[in-house]
Design a protein around this nucleic acid. Structure first.
Lengths: 257, 257
DNA sequence: CGGTCGATTGAAAGCACTCAATCGGGGTGG
DNA sequence: CCACCCCGATTGAGTGCTTTCAATCGACCG
Protein backbone atom coordinates (compact mmCIF):
# COMPACT_ATOMS: atom_id res chain seq x y z
CA UNK A 1 0.00 0.00 0.00
CA UNK A 2 2.93 2.30 0.63
CA UNK A 3 3.81 2.52 -3.00
CA UNK A 4 0.38 3.88 -3.65
CA UNK A 5 0.22 6.38 -0.84
CA UNK A 6 3.67 7.85 -0.53
CA UNK A 7 3.96 9.34 -4.00
CA UNK A 8 0.72 11.21 -3.58
CA UNK A 9 1.53 13.10 -0.45
CA UNK A 10 0.88 11.09 2.69
CA UNK A 11 3.91 9.88 4.56
CA UNK A 12 4.21 6.49 6.16
CA UNK A 13 2.99 7.70 9.50
CA UNK A 14 -0.03 9.44 8.05
CA UNK A 15 -0.93 6.44 5.96
CA UNK A 16 -0.87 4.30 9.07
CA UNK A 17 -3.08 6.74 10.95
CA UNK A 18 -5.68 6.68 8.21
CA UNK A 19 -5.45 2.93 7.98
CA UNK A 20 -6.04 2.55 11.69
CA UNK A 21 -9.51 4.07 11.70
CA UNK A 22 -10.73 2.01 8.74
CA UNK A 23 -12.54 -1.28 9.28
CA UNK A 24 -13.46 -3.67 6.50
CA UNK A 25 -16.86 -5.20 6.19
CA UNK A 26 -18.42 -7.74 3.85
CA UNK A 27 -21.86 -7.13 2.39
CA UNK A 28 -23.74 -9.98 0.76
CA UNK A 29 -25.52 -9.49 -2.53
CA UNK A 30 -28.98 -7.91 -2.22
CA UNK A 31 -28.41 -6.83 1.35
CA UNK A 32 -28.27 -3.29 2.62
CA UNK A 33 -25.15 -1.36 3.43
CA UNK A 34 -27.41 1.22 5.03
CA UNK A 35 -31.01 2.34 4.81
CA UNK A 36 -32.89 5.61 4.70
CA UNK A 37 -33.11 7.06 8.19
CA UNK A 38 -30.19 5.08 9.59
CA UNK A 39 -27.91 7.01 11.87
CA UNK A 40 -24.90 8.27 9.96
CA UNK A 41 -21.63 7.26 11.54
CA UNK A 42 -19.37 6.21 8.69
CA UNK A 43 -18.63 6.80 5.08
CA UNK A 44 -18.11 3.66 3.04
CA UNK A 45 -15.55 3.12 0.33
CA UNK A 46 -16.24 0.21 -1.99
CA UNK A 47 -13.31 -2.22 -2.04
CA UNK A 48 -14.88 -5.06 -3.98
CA UNK A 49 -18.23 -5.38 -5.70
CA UNK A 50 -20.98 -3.01 -6.75
CA UNK A 51 -23.77 -1.08 -5.11
CA UNK A 52 -26.81 0.93 -6.07
CA UNK A 53 -28.21 3.81 -4.05
CA UNK A 54 -31.78 5.01 -4.32
CA UNK A 55 -34.18 7.44 -2.75
CA UNK A 56 -37.85 6.78 -2.17
CA UNK A 57 -40.70 9.27 -2.30
CA UNK A 58 -43.90 9.24 -0.28
CA UNK A 59 -45.77 7.33 -2.95
CA UNK A 60 -43.16 4.59 -2.65
CA UNK A 61 -41.56 5.27 -6.04
CA UNK A 62 -37.85 4.74 -6.12
CA UNK A 63 -35.22 6.68 -7.97
CA UNK A 64 -31.77 5.18 -8.29
CA UNK A 65 -29.18 7.91 -7.74
CA UNK A 66 -26.17 5.98 -8.89
CA UNK A 67 -24.22 2.78 -9.17
CA UNK A 68 -21.01 2.55 -7.16
CA UNK A 69 -18.02 0.38 -7.89
CA UNK A 70 -14.58 -0.18 -6.36
CA UNK A 71 -13.04 3.05 -5.12
CA UNK A 72 -16.33 4.93 -5.00
CA UNK A 73 -17.39 6.57 -1.76
CA UNK A 74 -20.90 6.24 -0.35
CA UNK A 75 -22.79 8.19 2.26
CA UNK A 76 -21.72 11.78 1.64
CA UNK A 77 -25.33 12.90 1.39
CA UNK A 78 -25.81 11.98 5.04
CA UNK A 79 -23.23 14.35 6.51
CA UNK A 80 -25.51 17.35 6.82
CA UNK A 81 -28.38 15.68 8.63
CA UNK A 82 -26.52 12.81 10.34
CA UNK A 83 -29.13 10.49 8.85
CA UNK A 84 -28.77 8.47 5.69
CA UNK A 85 -30.89 9.87 2.91
CA UNK A 86 -31.00 6.83 0.68
CA UNK A 87 -30.74 3.06 0.67
CA UNK A 88 -27.52 1.41 -0.44
CA UNK A 89 -27.84 -2.16 -1.72
CA UNK A 90 -25.09 -4.52 -2.83
CA UNK A 91 -25.47 -5.77 -6.40
CA UNK A 92 -22.69 -8.31 -5.86
CA UNK A 93 -21.13 -9.93 -2.86
CA UNK A 94 -19.07 -6.93 -1.86
CA UNK A 95 -16.60 -5.56 0.60
CA UNK A 96 -16.35 -2.01 1.89
CA UNK A 97 -14.08 0.09 4.08
CA UNK A 98 -15.99 1.67 6.93
CA UNK A 99 -14.56 5.11 7.62
CA UNK A 100 -15.85 6.54 10.90
CA UNK A 101 -16.69 10.07 10.00
CA UNK A 102 -15.89 11.83 13.25
CA UNK A 103 -12.46 10.26 13.33
CA UNK A 104 -11.92 11.14 9.69
CA UNK A 105 -12.68 14.79 10.40
CA UNK A 106 -10.23 14.72 13.27
CA UNK A 107 -7.56 13.42 10.92
CA UNK A 108 -8.28 16.26 8.53
CA UNK A 109 -7.01 18.84 11.00
CA UNK A 110 -3.71 16.98 11.21
CA UNK A 111 -3.50 16.00 7.55
CA UNK A 112 -4.49 18.83 5.23
CA UNK A 113 -3.62 16.72 2.21
CA UNK A 114 -6.21 14.18 3.22
CA UNK A 115 -8.75 16.94 3.73
CA UNK A 116 -8.14 18.36 0.29
CA UNK A 117 -8.54 14.95 -1.24
CA UNK A 118 -11.83 14.56 0.52
CA UNK A 119 -13.06 17.88 -0.79
CA UNK A 120 -12.19 16.81 -4.31
CA UNK A 121 -14.11 13.60 -3.84
CA UNK A 122 -17.20 15.47 -2.66
CA UNK A 123 -16.86 17.89 -5.54
CA UNK A 124 -16.71 14.99 -7.97
CA UNK A 125 -19.83 13.58 -6.43
CA UNK A 126 -21.55 16.87 -7.19
CA UNK A 127 -20.26 16.84 -10.77
CA UNK A 128 -21.42 13.27 -11.22
CA UNK A 129 -24.91 14.22 -10.13
CA UNK A 130 -24.94 17.20 -12.44
CA UNK A 131 -24.13 14.78 -15.22
CA UNK A 132 -27.18 12.72 -14.27
CA UNK A 133 -29.28 15.87 -14.22
CA UNK A 134 -28.13 16.66 -17.75
CA UNK A 135 -29.06 13.14 -18.85
CA UNK A 136 -32.50 13.26 -17.26
CA UNK A 137 -33.30 16.80 -18.29
CA UNK A 138 -32.10 16.96 -21.85
CA UNK A 139 -31.70 13.59 -23.52
CA UNK A 140 -33.77 11.11 -25.49
CA UNK A 141 -33.84 7.47 -24.48
CA UNK A 142 -31.13 6.44 -26.92
CA UNK A 143 -28.83 9.24 -25.81
CA UNK A 144 -29.41 8.35 -22.19
CA UNK A 145 -28.48 4.75 -22.66
CA UNK A 146 -25.43 5.70 -24.71
CA UNK A 147 -24.30 8.06 -21.95
CA UNK A 148 -24.85 5.29 -19.43
CA UNK A 149 -22.64 2.85 -21.35
CA UNK A 150 -19.94 5.48 -21.84
CA UNK A 151 -19.95 6.24 -18.15
CA UNK A 152 -19.52 2.57 -17.26
CA UNK A 153 -16.87 2.16 -19.92
CA UNK A 154 -14.76 4.99 -18.55
CA UNK A 155 -15.10 3.92 -14.99
CA UNK A 156 -14.01 0.38 -15.76
CA UNK A 157 -11.13 1.69 -17.87
CA UNK A 158 -9.97 3.83 -14.95
CA UNK A 159 -9.86 0.71 -12.83
CA UNK A 160 -7.79 -1.19 -15.32
CA UNK A 161 -10.59 -3.18 -16.90
CA UNK A 162 -11.62 -3.24 -20.52
CA UNK A 163 -13.58 -0.18 -21.63
CA UNK A 164 -15.28 -2.24 -24.33
CA UNK A 165 -16.16 -5.48 -22.57
CA UNK A 166 -17.81 -5.55 -19.21
CA UNK A 167 -20.76 -6.93 -17.32
CA UNK A 168 -23.82 -5.05 -16.26
CA UNK A 169 -24.29 -5.69 -12.58
CA UNK A 170 -27.83 -4.34 -12.49
CA UNK A 171 -31.14 -5.37 -14.05
CA UNK A 172 -32.71 -3.63 -17.01
CA UNK A 173 -35.24 -2.27 -14.58
CA UNK A 174 -32.49 -0.71 -12.49
CA UNK A 175 -30.95 0.86 -15.57
CA UNK A 176 -34.31 2.22 -16.65
CA UNK A 177 -35.05 3.58 -13.21
CA UNK A 178 -31.67 5.31 -13.10
CA UNK A 179 -32.14 6.81 -16.56
CA UNK A 180 -35.73 7.87 -16.08
CA UNK A 181 -37.00 5.22 -18.51
CA UNK A 182 -38.93 1.98 -18.31
CA UNK A 183 -37.24 -1.38 -18.52
CA UNK A 184 -38.96 -1.88 -21.89
CA UNK A 185 -37.45 1.29 -23.29
CA UNK A 186 -34.01 0.18 -22.19
CA UNK A 187 -34.58 -3.13 -23.89
CA UNK A 188 -35.60 -1.37 -27.09
CA UNK A 189 -32.55 0.88 -27.02
CA UNK A 190 -30.32 -2.17 -26.65
CA UNK A 191 -32.07 -3.79 -29.60
CA UNK A 192 -31.65 -0.66 -31.69
CA UNK A 193 -27.97 -0.21 -30.90
CA UNK A 194 -27.34 -3.87 -31.62
CA UNK A 195 -29.09 -3.56 -34.94
CA UNK A 196 -26.96 -0.51 -35.69
CA UNK A 197 -23.82 -2.50 -34.97
CA UNK A 198 -22.70 -0.34 -32.07
CA UNK A 199 -22.80 -2.94 -29.34
CA UNK A 200 -23.42 -6.58 -28.63
CA UNK A 201 -25.32 -7.56 -25.52
CA UNK A 202 -25.96 -11.07 -24.29
CA UNK A 203 -27.68 -11.09 -20.95
CA UNK A 204 -25.52 -8.90 -18.75
CA UNK A 205 -22.43 -9.15 -20.97
CA UNK A 206 -21.77 -6.02 -22.99
CA UNK A 207 -19.31 -5.50 -25.80
CA UNK A 208 -18.95 -2.02 -27.24
CA UNK A 209 -17.83 -1.97 -30.87
CA UNK A 210 -17.83 1.73 -31.49
CA UNK A 211 -17.22 3.93 -28.51
CA UNK A 212 -16.80 7.13 -30.51
CA UNK A 213 -20.15 6.56 -32.20
CA UNK A 214 -21.68 6.13 -28.75
CA UNK A 215 -20.13 9.44 -27.73
CA UNK A 216 -21.65 11.14 -30.72
CA UNK A 217 -25.01 9.60 -29.96
CA UNK A 218 -24.89 10.79 -26.37
CA UNK A 219 -23.85 14.25 -27.52
CA UNK A 220 -26.92 14.41 -29.71
CA UNK A 221 -25.16 14.08 -33.04
CA UNK A 222 -27.03 11.88 -35.50
CA UNK A 223 -24.57 9.21 -36.64
CA UNK A 224 -26.91 7.84 -39.30
CA UNK A 225 -26.76 11.14 -41.16
CA UNK A 226 -23.79 10.27 -43.35
CA UNK A 227 -24.37 13.30 -45.52
CA UNK A 228 -22.27 15.26 -43.11
CA UNK A 229 -18.90 16.07 -44.60
CA UNK A 230 -16.98 14.48 -41.81
CA UNK A 231 -18.15 11.89 -39.38
CA UNK A 232 -15.02 12.38 -37.33
CA UNK A 233 -15.59 15.17 -34.92
CA UNK A 234 -12.90 17.14 -33.21
CA UNK A 235 -11.22 15.11 -30.53
CA UNK A 236 -12.94 17.10 -27.87
CA UNK A 237 -16.09 15.23 -28.71
CA UNK A 238 -14.80 11.76 -28.08
CA UNK A 239 -12.87 13.09 -25.11
CA UNK A 240 -16.03 14.46 -23.55
CA UNK A 241 -15.78 13.60 -19.92
CA UNK A 242 -18.67 11.79 -18.41
CA UNK A 243 -16.46 10.97 -15.48
CA UNK A 244 -13.43 12.26 -13.69
CA UNK A 245 -10.28 11.55 -15.67
CA UNK A 246 -8.40 9.42 -13.16
CA UNK A 247 -8.75 7.52 -9.95
CA UNK A 248 -8.13 9.77 -7.00
CA UNK A 249 -5.51 9.00 -4.45
CA UNK A 250 -8.13 8.02 -1.92
CA UNK A 251 -9.79 5.63 -4.33
CA UNK A 252 -6.51 3.90 -4.85
CA UNK A 253 -5.77 3.87 -1.16
CA UNK A 254 -8.88 2.16 0.03
CA UNK A 255 -8.96 -0.40 -2.71
CA UNK A 256 -5.29 -1.28 -2.27
CA UNK A 257 -4.04 -4.76 -1.49
CA UNK B 1 -22.46 40.10 12.99
CA UNK B 2 -21.13 38.83 16.29
CA UNK B 3 -24.56 38.00 17.56
CA UNK B 4 -24.96 35.68 14.65
CA UNK B 5 -21.60 33.97 14.83
CA UNK B 6 -20.81 33.58 18.48
CA UNK B 7 -23.73 31.40 19.48
CA UNK B 8 -22.93 28.91 16.75
CA UNK B 9 -19.37 28.12 17.64
CA UNK B 10 -16.90 30.60 16.25
CA UNK B 11 -15.32 32.99 18.70
CA UNK B 12 -14.66 36.63 17.97
CA UNK B 13 -11.15 36.02 16.77
CA UNK B 14 -12.19 33.23 14.43
CA UNK B 15 -15.01 35.27 13.03
CA UNK B 16 -12.59 38.06 12.23
CA UNK B 17 -10.19 35.65 10.54
CA UNK B 18 -12.93 34.36 8.29
CA UNK B 19 -14.16 37.83 7.61
CA UNK B 20 -10.71 38.97 6.56
CA UNK B 21 -10.38 36.64 3.60
CA UNK B 22 -13.82 37.49 2.21
CA UNK B 23 -14.25 40.20 -0.40
CA UNK B 24 -17.59 41.50 -1.59
CA UNK B 25 -18.40 41.94 -5.24
CA UNK B 26 -21.39 43.28 -7.12
CA UNK B 27 -22.74 41.44 -10.16
CA UNK B 28 -25.12 43.18 -12.50
CA UNK B 29 -28.22 41.43 -13.75
CA UNK B 30 -27.62 39.12 -16.72
CA UNK B 31 -23.85 39.16 -16.27
CA UNK B 32 -21.69 36.21 -15.40
CA UNK B 33 -20.29 35.45 -11.97
CA UNK B 34 -18.11 32.83 -13.67
CA UNK B 35 -18.13 30.80 -16.84
CA UNK B 36 -17.44 27.22 -17.82
CA UNK B 37 -13.70 26.68 -18.03
CA UNK B 38 -12.78 29.66 -15.85
CA UNK B 39 -9.99 29.02 -13.40
CA UNK B 40 -11.40 28.18 -9.99
CA UNK B 41 -10.05 30.39 -7.25
CA UNK B 42 -13.01 31.24 -5.06
CA UNK B 43 -16.31 30.01 -3.84
CA UNK B 44 -19.09 32.56 -3.91
CA UNK B 45 -21.78 33.07 -1.30
CA UNK B 46 -24.80 35.02 -2.46
CA UNK B 47 -25.42 38.04 -0.25
CA UNK B 48 -28.08 39.77 -2.27
CA UNK B 49 -29.94 38.75 -5.40
CA UNK B 50 -30.41 35.55 -7.34
CA UNK B 51 -28.38 33.42 -9.73
CA UNK B 52 -28.86 30.51 -12.06
CA UNK B 53 -26.19 27.95 -12.91
CA UNK B 54 -26.24 25.80 -16.01
CA UNK B 55 -24.15 23.30 -17.89
CA UNK B 56 -23.90 23.08 -21.64
CA UNK B 57 -23.45 19.99 -23.75
CA UNK B 58 -21.61 19.65 -27.05
CA UNK B 59 -24.75 20.26 -29.06
CA UNK B 60 -25.11 23.58 -27.25
CA UNK B 61 -28.13 22.53 -25.22
CA UNK B 62 -28.23 23.98 -21.76
CA UNK B 63 -29.41 22.43 -18.54
CA UNK B 64 -30.02 24.66 -15.56
CA UNK B 65 -28.69 22.96 -12.44
CA UNK B 66 -30.19 25.26 -9.92
CA UNK B 67 -31.28 28.69 -8.79
CA UNK B 68 -29.30 30.27 -5.97
CA UNK B 69 -30.51 32.91 -3.55
CA UNK B 70 -29.07 34.73 -0.54
CA UNK B 71 -26.98 32.45 1.63
CA UNK B 72 -26.45 29.85 -1.07
CA UNK B 73 -22.94 28.85 -2.00
CA UNK B 74 -21.76 28.57 -5.61
CA UNK B 75 -18.78 26.91 -7.21
CA UNK B 76 -18.40 23.70 -5.23
CA UNK B 77 -18.45 21.62 -8.40
CA UNK B 78 -15.18 23.26 -9.46
CA UNK B 79 -13.07 22.09 -6.54
CA UNK B 80 -12.04 18.77 -8.00
CA UNK B 81 -10.82 20.03 -11.38
CA UNK B 82 -9.89 23.60 -10.46
CA UNK B 83 -12.02 24.71 -13.42
CA UNK B 84 -15.59 25.90 -13.26
CA UNK B 85 -17.98 23.33 -14.66
CA UNK B 86 -20.93 25.57 -15.31
CA UNK B 87 -21.94 29.15 -16.01
CA UNK B 88 -23.34 31.28 -13.19
CA UNK B 89 -25.54 34.19 -14.26
CA UNK B 90 -27.15 36.84 -12.09
CA UNK B 91 -30.93 37.01 -12.40
CA UNK B 92 -31.02 40.25 -10.41
CA UNK B 93 -28.52 42.92 -9.62
CA UNK B 94 -26.69 40.94 -6.98
CA UNK B 95 -23.87 40.94 -4.52
CA UNK B 96 -21.67 38.03 -3.51
CA UNK B 97 -18.94 37.23 -1.04
CA UNK B 98 -15.82 35.94 -2.76
CA UNK B 99 -14.21 33.31 -0.59
CA UNK B 100 -10.68 32.45 -1.79
CA UNK B 101 -10.65 28.70 -1.65
CA UNK B 102 -7.01 28.09 -0.76
CA UNK B 103 -7.25 30.49 2.15
CA UNK B 104 -10.50 28.92 3.25
CA UNK B 105 -8.87 25.49 3.36
CA UNK B 106 -6.04 26.93 5.41
CA UNK B 107 -8.57 28.26 7.90
CA UNK B 108 -10.13 24.82 8.16
CA UNK B 109 -7.02 23.38 9.77
CA UNK B 110 -7.24 26.03 12.47
CA UNK B 111 -11.01 26.09 12.79
CA UNK B 112 -12.52 22.61 12.78
CA UNK B 113 -15.96 24.06 13.38
CA UNK B 114 -15.75 25.99 10.16
CA UNK B 115 -14.59 22.86 8.34
CA UNK B 116 -17.50 20.84 9.63
CA UNK B 117 -19.91 23.54 8.54
CA UNK B 118 -18.42 23.46 5.10
CA UNK B 119 -18.84 19.70 4.88
CA UNK B 120 -22.47 20.05 5.80
CA UNK B 121 -22.95 22.66 3.09
CA UNK B 122 -21.40 20.39 0.46
CA UNK B 123 -23.51 17.51 1.69
CA UNK B 124 -26.61 19.63 1.36
CA UNK B 125 -25.61 20.50 -2.16
CA UNK B 126 -25.52 16.78 -2.91
CA UNK B 127 -28.93 16.27 -1.32
CA UNK B 128 -30.36 19.15 -3.30
CA UNK B 129 -29.16 17.63 -6.53
CA UNK B 130 -30.59 14.26 -5.56
CA UNK B 131 -33.88 16.05 -5.13
CA UNK B 132 -33.62 17.36 -8.68
CA UNK B 133 -32.79 13.87 -9.90
CA UNK B 134 -35.94 12.59 -8.25
CA UNK B 135 -37.97 15.32 -9.91
CA UNK B 136 -36.52 14.69 -13.35
CA UNK B 137 -36.57 10.93 -13.16
CA UNK B 138 -39.93 10.21 -11.61
CA UNK B 139 -42.42 13.04 -11.87
CA UNK B 140 -45.05 14.29 -14.29
CA UNK B 141 -45.06 17.91 -15.38
CA UNK B 142 -47.59 19.00 -12.77
CA UNK B 143 -45.70 17.27 -9.97
CA UNK B 144 -42.48 18.85 -11.11
CA UNK B 145 -43.86 22.34 -11.06
CA UNK B 146 -45.49 21.75 -7.68
CA UNK B 147 -42.16 20.55 -6.29
CA UNK B 148 -40.50 23.61 -7.75
CA UNK B 149 -42.91 25.98 -6.04
CA UNK B 150 -42.62 24.14 -2.73
CA UNK B 151 -38.87 24.36 -2.93
CA UNK B 152 -38.97 28.11 -3.51
CA UNK B 153 -41.58 28.53 -0.79
CA UNK B 154 -39.43 26.80 1.81
CA UNK B 155 -36.29 28.61 0.85
CA UNK B 156 -37.96 31.99 1.11
CA UNK B 157 -39.55 31.01 4.40
CA UNK B 158 -36.13 30.06 5.78
CA UNK B 159 -34.92 33.53 4.88
CA UNK B 160 -37.78 35.22 6.66
CA UNK B 161 -39.92 35.94 3.63
CA UNK B 162 -43.44 34.79 2.98
CA UNK B 163 -43.74 31.16 1.96
CA UNK B 164 -46.93 31.93 0.08
CA UNK B 165 -46.14 35.16 -1.75
CA UNK B 166 -42.96 35.63 -3.69
CA UNK B 167 -41.63 36.62 -7.05
CA UNK B 168 -40.20 34.31 -9.64
CA UNK B 169 -36.84 35.70 -10.63
CA UNK B 170 -36.49 33.53 -13.72
CA UNK B 171 -38.38 33.21 -17.01
CA UNK B 172 -40.80 30.43 -17.79
CA UNK B 173 -38.18 29.10 -20.12
CA UNK B 174 -35.65 28.90 -17.30
CA UNK B 175 -38.16 27.08 -15.12
CA UNK B 176 -38.92 24.65 -17.92
CA UNK B 177 -35.28 24.04 -18.64
CA UNK B 178 -34.62 23.37 -14.96
CA UNK B 179 -37.56 20.97 -14.69
CA UNK B 180 -36.92 19.13 -17.94
CA UNK B 181 -40.00 20.67 -19.57
CA UNK B 182 -40.72 23.25 -22.25
CA UNK B 183 -41.77 26.76 -21.46
CA UNK B 184 -45.19 25.95 -22.91
CA UNK B 185 -45.65 23.04 -20.53
CA UNK B 186 -44.79 25.25 -17.58
CA UNK B 187 -47.35 27.75 -18.77
CA UNK B 188 -49.99 25.05 -19.02
CA UNK B 189 -49.24 23.78 -15.52
CA UNK B 190 -49.63 27.30 -14.16
CA UNK B 191 -52.96 27.60 -15.95
CA UNK B 192 -54.12 24.27 -14.56
CA UNK B 193 -53.13 25.03 -10.99
CA UNK B 194 -54.76 28.42 -11.23
CA UNK B 195 -57.95 26.84 -12.50
CA UNK B 196 -57.79 24.37 -9.61
CA UNK B 197 -57.53 27.23 -7.16
CA UNK B 198 -54.12 26.25 -5.83
CA UNK B 199 -52.20 29.33 -6.84
CA UNK B 200 -52.51 32.74 -8.43
CA UNK B 201 -49.83 33.93 -10.79
CA UNK B 202 -49.60 37.36 -12.39
CA UNK B 203 -46.44 37.77 -14.39
CA UNK B 204 -43.67 36.82 -12.00
CA UNK B 205 -45.77 37.30 -8.86
CA UNK B 206 -46.87 34.07 -7.24
CA UNK B 207 -49.36 33.52 -4.48
CA UNK B 208 -49.81 30.03 -3.10
CA UNK B 209 -53.25 29.37 -1.65
CA UNK B 210 -52.85 25.76 -0.67
CA UNK B 211 -49.37 24.62 0.20
CA UNK B 212 -50.42 21.27 1.58
CA UNK B 213 -52.29 20.46 -1.62
CA UNK B 214 -49.15 21.33 -3.54
CA UNK B 215 -47.24 18.92 -1.34
CA UNK B 216 -49.71 16.18 -2.09
CA UNK B 217 -49.49 16.92 -5.78
CA UNK B 218 -45.71 16.72 -5.71
CA UNK B 219 -45.87 13.50 -3.75
CA UNK B 220 -48.04 11.98 -6.47
CA UNK B 221 -51.27 11.95 -4.51
CA UNK B 222 -54.28 12.86 -6.59
CA UNK B 223 -56.03 15.72 -4.81
CA UNK B 224 -59.04 15.70 -7.13
CA UNK B 225 -59.91 12.20 -5.93
CA UNK B 226 -62.11 13.29 -3.07
CA UNK B 227 -63.42 9.76 -2.61
CA UNK B 228 -60.47 9.11 -0.36
CA UNK B 229 -61.58 8.89 3.23
CA UNK B 230 -59.23 11.58 4.39
CA UNK B 231 -57.65 14.31 2.39
CA UNK B 232 -55.46 15.25 5.28
CA UNK B 233 -52.36 13.16 5.24
CA UNK B 234 -50.11 12.53 8.19
CA UNK B 235 -48.02 15.54 9.00
CA UNK B 236 -44.96 13.87 7.56
CA UNK B 237 -46.39 14.61 4.16
CA UNK B 238 -46.65 18.34 4.54
CA UNK B 239 -43.37 18.30 6.40
CA UNK B 240 -41.66 16.54 3.50
CA UNK B 241 -38.36 18.26 3.15
CA UNK B 242 -37.46 19.52 -0.25
CA UNK B 243 -34.81 21.61 1.43
CA UNK B 244 -32.70 21.64 4.54
CA UNK B 245 -34.73 22.63 7.56
CA UNK B 246 -32.86 25.77 8.55
CA UNK B 247 -30.30 28.26 7.42
CA UNK B 248 -26.84 27.07 8.28
CA UNK B 249 -24.50 29.11 10.35
CA UNK B 250 -22.41 29.94 7.31
CA UNK B 251 -25.43 31.14 5.35
CA UNK B 252 -26.30 33.51 8.13
CA UNK B 253 -22.73 34.65 8.46
CA UNK B 254 -22.14 35.74 4.93
CA UNK B 255 -25.47 37.37 4.48
CA UNK B 256 -25.16 39.30 7.73
CA UNK B 257 -25.23 43.07 7.95
C1' DC C 1 -38.05 -30.74 -16.74
C1' DG C 2 -41.05 -27.47 -15.00
C1' DG C 3 -40.83 -23.01 -12.50
C1' DT C 4 -39.41 -18.46 -11.87
C1' DC C 5 -37.67 -14.16 -12.81
C1' DG C 6 -35.66 -11.12 -15.95
C1' DA C 7 -35.76 -9.67 -20.70
C1' DT C 8 -37.80 -8.99 -25.21
C1' DT C 9 -41.26 -7.66 -28.46
C1' DG C 10 -45.71 -5.80 -30.15
C1' DA C 11 -49.76 -2.79 -30.17
C1' DA C 12 -52.24 0.97 -28.35
C1' DA C 13 -52.54 5.01 -25.43
C1' DG C 14 -50.87 9.11 -23.13
C1' DC C 15 -48.14 12.96 -21.90
C1' DA C 16 -45.28 16.40 -23.30
C1' DC C 17 -43.28 18.49 -27.39
C1' DT C 18 -43.31 21.13 -31.66
C1' DC C 19 -45.07 24.54 -34.39
C1' DA C 20 -47.80 28.46 -34.83
C1' DA C 21 -50.72 32.20 -33.67
C1' DT C 22 -51.96 35.53 -30.27
C1' DC C 23 -51.74 38.10 -26.12
C1' DG C 24 -49.88 41.60 -23.09
C1' DG C 25 -46.78 44.32 -20.19
C1' DG C 26 -42.84 47.39 -20.13
C1' DG C 27 -39.80 50.27 -22.28
C1' DT C 28 -38.68 53.57 -25.95
C1' DG C 29 -39.15 57.15 -29.09
C1' DG C 30 -41.77 60.46 -31.43
C1' DC D 1 -48.57 61.29 -23.39
C1' DC D 2 -49.43 57.95 -26.48
C1' DA D 3 -48.29 54.68 -30.03
C1' DC D 4 -45.37 51.32 -31.23
C1' DC D 5 -42.30 47.62 -30.58
C1' DC D 6 -40.25 43.76 -28.42
C1' DC D 7 -39.98 39.94 -25.78
C1' DG D 8 -41.90 36.88 -22.61
C1' DA D 9 -46.04 34.33 -21.85
C1' DT D 10 -50.25 32.02 -23.22
C1' DT D 11 -53.12 29.04 -25.87
C1' DG D 12 -54.37 25.71 -29.55
C1' DA D 13 -53.73 21.83 -32.75
C1' DG D 14 -51.20 18.07 -34.29
C1' DT D 15 -47.24 15.06 -33.79
C1' DG D 16 -44.11 11.93 -31.63
C1' DC D 17 -41.49 9.66 -28.12
C1' DT D 18 -42.07 6.91 -24.36
C1' DT D 19 -45.15 4.43 -21.56
C1' DT D 20 -48.52 1.02 -20.57
C1' DC D 21 -50.39 -3.33 -21.05
C1' DA D 22 -49.88 -7.82 -22.64
C1' DA D 23 -47.86 -11.87 -24.54
C1' DT D 24 -43.77 -14.46 -25.26
C1' DC D 25 -39.13 -15.73 -24.80
C1' DG D 26 -35.20 -17.64 -22.45
C1' DA D 27 -31.69 -18.49 -19.00
C1' DC D 28 -30.81 -20.24 -14.57
C1' DC D 29 -31.97 -23.42 -10.76
C1' DG D 30 -33.64 -26.76 -7.97
Amino acid sequence: MRQICLPTGLNEHETRLLDQIIVRKKIARDSYLYRIGDQFTSLYAVRVGHFKTYQENLAGDRQINGFQMSGDLLGMDAISSALHQCDAVALDDSEVCMIPYTQLETLFTEMPILMRHFHRVMSEEIMGEQNVIMILGNMYAEQRFAAFLINLSRRYALRGYSPTRFQLRMTREDIGNYLGLTMESVSRMIAKMRKDGLIEVRQRDVEVFNLSALNKLAAGIDISDSSQASLDLPSVVTEYNYLSPQLTYLQRLWTAK
